[in-house]
């Protein structure tokens, strides 16, 4: 079994209203060093590879369902292999 974490975020070119609001809140806490926050989401998948590799499964699931390429982009990390 392979545990994979897929991160989905808005593209840099797309305005992220949550990120901006959170940035403002961080500034009001006094952390002026924080210049930008981008909010995204992640999906943890437990995969038992069969006829497809983990990379193939992750890219196909992401491209066909988890990511809307009009707005978003993704990357993933293999967390651990057991």
């Amino acid at each position: 079994m392979v545990n994979v974490r897929i991160f989905v975020t808005y593209k840099q070119s797309v305005f992220n209203p949550q990120g901006e609001t959170i940035t403002d809140a961080i500034h009001s806490l006094g952390f002026s060093a924080v210049k930008k926050v981008n909010v995204g989401k992640f999906f943890d998948l437990q995969i038992e590879p069969n006829d497809k590799t983990v990379a193939e499964i992750v890219s196909q699931v992401s491209e066909q369902l988890l990511v809307n390429f009009n707005l978003e982009t993704y990357h993933y990390e293999v967390m651990e292999e057991a």
């Binding site: 305005f15 209203p17 949550q18 609001t21 809307n68 009009n70 707005l71």
Partner: peptide
């Protein structure tokens, strides 16, 4: 309709949240 690809583009969260 946008998610199904029948219309171009996407609808995202309102700027005001």
């Amino acid at each position: 309709l946008t998610e199904a690809g029948l219309l171009p583009g996407a609808l995202k969260q309102n700027d005001s949240l």
